[in-house]
Design a protein around this nucleic acid. Structure first.
Length: 975
RNA sequence: GGGCGUUUAGCUCAGUUGGUUAGAGCGUCAGCUCGACAAGCUGAAGGUCACUGGUUCGAGCCCAGUAACGCCCACCA
């Protein structure tokens, strides 16, 4: 199972890898399954809908109402989900569409209800407080990544709070500083550092150290800072010490305007080097003060309504907005003579990314899952190896995060999602509850002492408001965190809580493939809910794949505008190229850097995407000077322009490879007339047949091992080089001649067909469309195929089994022999090229080598004609160079090309001199190495022997090359 | 602040247990339209493996440190 949609390249990568594994396992006879889903899409959609609502109609969801908003979200979501399904289909993903589950699918919703009920019944769910970033315009909490900071001009106010009953030697009042005066209405303490002397000393020491090491241009600022700290020690410290003692003695100050006595507390949050050294504590509206309140056990007073106006806790200021209240508070303190001074200073203000309004931190009631026991279960699953994380280094982050056992806040102030199945009642007695729900095991309740109310949870179905006669039930408005339902994905999609056959068969699943940034959010939670609900881990292995980055190495994201749409890639390069390309890029450690370009819709020029142009709605093509629109086009005049596709050249390799495969397949299919299946005996096989069969066995083995370890790039590279550099460049070329000859044609057809058949099956998981097409065509031309054992081809490659690596076919001797052949071939081609021999002109060449090598080469000699337009005239130890030849010296071999009067003497002489220079350098290095006593004595004998042999070989090459140079030089003199 | 990763050819990346001359694709240059393939074929040029030090007979690879870039988590580890 898999929970992502296909919205951008990261999702495409994820889906592709998941699908490759699924297809591959299917070829091995597993009944494999993977399911896409769009759980995540709910929140994203609500955010988009709300933003548009605000921008286009100036309305918030509260203007629209719950039903109105949900109706709009449905409209968007349907489009979105249709798009995901269409993308997955175009990518060739073989997921089971019939099982696709979306957020509010009834099966998943039921699993969510059951899980919540079980957790609640087991006492693992509780209601608590949490400080959130509140958007007062949209009246919703916003996540950390939806907050942006902006530095704005502001003020720093210094106020006095009078001390209650000051004793002799104690100050009459304490001074505090703030940028948000209105929050003082919610103050519940004033804090002072418990060890101001020590704290100042530490700060001073640190500053002095920094000053000593700092570069000159920073010295002045640091010196000023240091001076300030020293001044504080002289002037401020005595009073801070007194205040600290007062705090310890439980003394209090009077909160002005509210006339509320609040305690002085000693807490390290009050930094003696900052402000006045004393800090007002507003637990309900500041994250740090909230922490102080938890430590000091202070009351927390929320002074805000959800819409940003002040509530009844603000007394006379009730109903004012934050900014109105700020002015009134300052003015009122002024009249009481409690304002010491005001400074102008820039302040860092957090804004909501959605409504662009300033964030108000606010204390809210939230639902939590108690994590201590659950986390431990999930940790144990990984430490004992029941869940294996690949690559293993990611286990650390998983374990570290879980080991904190921080409780999981699961409520969200959204209107889209699974509404929390809790009903409140604060009037009924326990007896009345017991009577109302008598005999119902699907309803449980608990008394909430903080809220002074009953919390009633129902496992299935909603409770009517009058479920308890004479009382009214009120339902919790919040919905569950999207990860709560996502965490259930592996079992909820299979039908849990019912014991369905699917659940029995597929659970636990074999592998989850995902990106590293949701290891904690999602993977950990799937493991723990799986264990909690089903008593078994949800998957045996987790493969963490790389991230897709842009040209600057940054994560692709919608807000940066640096994404690539998979559909654009499919349109430009094809779905197979997208899949193979992504697999080819999936290495173990390296994130995938993907430079991106706009393709001009007018002239198809590629316009590089930069940090500057990636957010523009329209761009002018530098080539044809016409304008085109981008994915950001919103205004009608921008949208009227043709839209540029966003593409990446990194898929070209894959596209070219697919094209090469198609052409090679075409060659085979064009040469299959008269094909008749029959077993091929050993003696009918030629050397190139045995070579290609050996290579196929090796490659099958390598690809299987790579996929087993999730090394997608390794598997793809292995197939790429085999298919292109060996199958196409050598085997197909060598078999061409045999196909022309009626005597050798049948065997050549059989081996070629078998090789192509095997290659297609190996490539199918990564290139499903092309391989299926060729498979069908091959099935018509050669329905029965094989070498040893004949077999009727399956009607679809999807059910054709994965090839077995036939160990008996692996032949190192043949592969070595072939390597020698390739060396000679390369030498002949190089000589052709440097001597500028016209392509059509045949050349003659001879090879001097030992008798053994000559035997190796003998059967391959005819192929030089086809592969290099060259005719071998002689090979063996007795070969002597023709009078005028171009030559190449190889280890143990010398190749002479007879050029008679055609020879370009100067080119040959230059070449020889170049070769000699290179040989000199290498011989020198080799001699030094062998002259090193340490090396000879300490290195393994085999290594030393190899180096000696290598030196001798180099010297032989040197002798022969310089002899040839001499001959060339004397020829030049003679002419 | 903590954790993790990366740094190899102009670009994007491979490089197995430390052992001949560090590889590929794209790009560049030269030459090829011979019946699968110009999205192709053949050949060539191009690298002080980020830097400093260490271990070793021998380091792209192992160890320590430095720098740059990126990611995740954050007054927790």
């Amino acid at each position: 199972p898999n929970v992502t949609g296909a919205l951008h390249m990261g999702h495409a990568l994820n889906n592709t890898l998941q699908d490759i594994v699924t297809r591959w396992r299917r070829q091995q006879g597993y009944e494999a399954l993977w399911m896409p889903g769009t759980d995540h899409a709910g929140i994203a959609t609500q955010a988009v809908v709300e933003r548009r609502l605000l921008e286009e109609e100036g309305k918030t969801r509260h203007d629209l109402g719950r039903e109105g908003l949900v109706a709009r979200i449905w409209a968007w979501k349907n489009q979105y989900e249709a798009r995901i399904l269409s993308q997955l289909k175009q990518m060739g993903c073989s997921c089971d569409w019939s099982r696709t589950r979306f957020t509010l699918d009834p099966v998943c919703a039921r699993a969510v209800r059951h899980t919540f009920f079980r957790l609640f019944r087991d006492g693992l769910i509780y209601r608590g407080k949490r400080l959130v970033n509140w958007d007062t315009l949209l009246q919703t909490a916003v996540a950390d990544d939806e907050v942006f900071h902006e530095t704005v001009p502001g003020h720093f106010w210094y106020f006095y709070y009078p001390v209650i009953d000051p004793q002799p030697g104690e100050p009459q009042r304490v001074m505090i500083a703030t940028t948000r005066p209105e929050t003082m209405l919610g103050d519940t303490a004033v804090a002072v550092h418990p060890d101001p002397a020590g704290a100042l000393e530490r700060v001073e020491g640190e500053l002095a150290r920094k000053l000593a090491e700092a570069p000159a241009r920073e010295k002045q600022a640091l010196a000023a800072e240091l001076e300030d700290v020293r001044r504080r020690r002289r002037e401020l410290l005595p009073e801070l010490l007194v205040l600290r003692d007062m705090a310890r003695a439980g003394r209090r100050v009077m909160l002005p305007l509210m006339n509320r006595p609040i305690p002085l507390v000693a807490d390290p949050w009050a930094k003696p080097e900052m402000g006045t050294g004393c800090v007002k504590i507003t637990p309900a509206h500041d994250p740090n003060d909230y922490e102080v309140a938890l430590r000091q056990n202070l009351p927390m007073i929320n002074i805000l309504n959800p819409d940003g106006t002040l509530n009844e806790n603000a007394g006379a200021y009730r109903g004012l907005s934050v900014l109105e209240a700020r002015q009134r508070v300052v003015a009122d303190l002024e009249t009481q003579g409690l304002v010491a001074r005001v400074e102008d200073r820039p302040i860092d203000l957090a804004h909501s990314d959605r409504s662009k309004t300033p964030i108000e931190p606010m204390l809210t009631d939230q639902w939590f899952v108690r994590m201590d026991r659950l986390s431990q279960m999930a940790m144990d699953a990984v430490t004992t190896g029941r869940v294996k994380i690949v690559p293993p280094r990611y286990s650390k982050g998983y374990l570290d995060w879980l080991s904190e056992k921080r409780d999981w806040p699961i409520s969200r102030q959204l209107w889209w999602g699974h509404q929390i199945p809790i009903w409140y009642c604060d009037t009924a007695s326990e007896d009345q509850l017991r009577r109302a729900f008598a005999g119902r095991e699907d309803v449980v309740w608990r008394w909430d002492p903080d809220g002074r109310q009953w919390l009633i949870c129902a496992q299935e179905g909603d409770l009517p408001a009058d479920a308890i006669p004479g009382h009214r039930l009120r339902r919790e408005e919040d919905v569950l965190d999207t990860w709560f339902s996502s965490a259930l994905w592996p079992h909820s999609t299979l039908g849990w809580p019912d014991a369905t056959p699917e659940l029995r068969y597929y659970y636990p699943t074999s592998v989850l493939i995902t990106s590293r940034d949701i290891i904690t959010l999602w993977v950990a939670r799937m493991v723990l809910t799986g264990l909690y609900n089903c008593g078994e881990v949800p998957f045996r292995e987790v493969f963490i794949h790389p991230k897709i980055l842009d040209a600057y190495g940054e994560t692709m994201s919608k807000s940066k505008g640096n994404g690539v749409d998979p559909i654009d890639v499919i349109e430009k390069f094809g779905a197979d190229a997208l899949r193979f390309g992504l697999a080819y890029l999936t290495t173990e450690t390296q994130d995938i850097r993907m430079p991106v370009a706009f393709e001009c819709p007018h002239c198809t020029a590629l316009v590089e995407q930069t940090r500057e142009n990636r957010l523009l709605p329209r761009i002018r093509c530098p080539q044809c000077k016409k304008e085109f629109s981008t994915q950001w086009a919103e205004r009608p005049e921008d949208r009227a322009l043709p839209r540029a596709a966003v593409v990446s050249e990194r898929f070209e390799i894959a596209r070219n490879f697919c094209n090469k495969l198609w052409n090679a397949s075409r060659f085979a299919l064009l040469n299959l007339q008269g094909y008749a299946p029959a077993a091929v005996s050993e003696d009918q096989l030629r050397i190139e047949d045995r070579w290609v069969l050996s290579r196929l066995a090796t490659v099958t083995q390598e690809v299987s091992e790579a996929l087993e370890r999730y090394q997608f790039a390794e598997a793809a590279r292995c197939l790429y080089t085999f298919a292109w550099d060996e199958f196409c460049s050598f085997y197909v070329e060598m078999v061409k001649g045999r196909l022309q000859d009626p005597a050798s044609r049948p065997v050549a057809q059989r081996v070629l067909t078998h090789a192509l058949d095997t290659l297609l099956r190996l490539l199918h998981p990564m290139i499903p469309f092309l391989t299926e097409e060729v498979w069908q065509l091959l099935g018509e031309a050669a329905p029965v195929r094989g070498i040893d054992r004949l077999r009727r081809a399956e009607p679809s490659i999807m059910i054709a089994p994965w090839p077995e690596a036939d160990a008996a076919r692996r032949n190192a001797e043949i592969e070595r022999r072939f390597a020698r052949f390739q060396e000679v071939l390369r030498a002949v081609r190089e000589i052709r090229s440097r001597q500028n021999v016209p392509p059509r002109q045949e050349i003659a060449f001879a090879v001097r080598c030992d008798a053994e090598t000559a035997d190796l080469l003998a059967p391959l000699v005819p192929y030089f004609q086809a592969l290099a337009g060259a005719r071998a005239t002689a090979w063996g130890p007795d070969v002597h160079p023709p009078l005028l030849s171009a030559n190449a010296t190889l280890p143990g071999m010398e190749v002479y090309v007879d050029l008679a009067e055609l020879i370009d003497l100067e080119a040959e002489i230059a070449r020889k001199r170049h070769e000699l220079a290179r040989l000199d350098a290498r011989i020198e290095a080799q001699r030094n190495k062998l002259a090193n006593e340490n090396f000879v004595r300490r290195a393994p004998a085999a290594v030393v022997e190899k180096e000696r042999a290598s030196l001798e070989e180099l010297q032989a090459q040197h002798a022969s090359t310089s002899a040839m140079l001499q001959r060339l030089l004397s020829t030049r003199r003679a002419s």
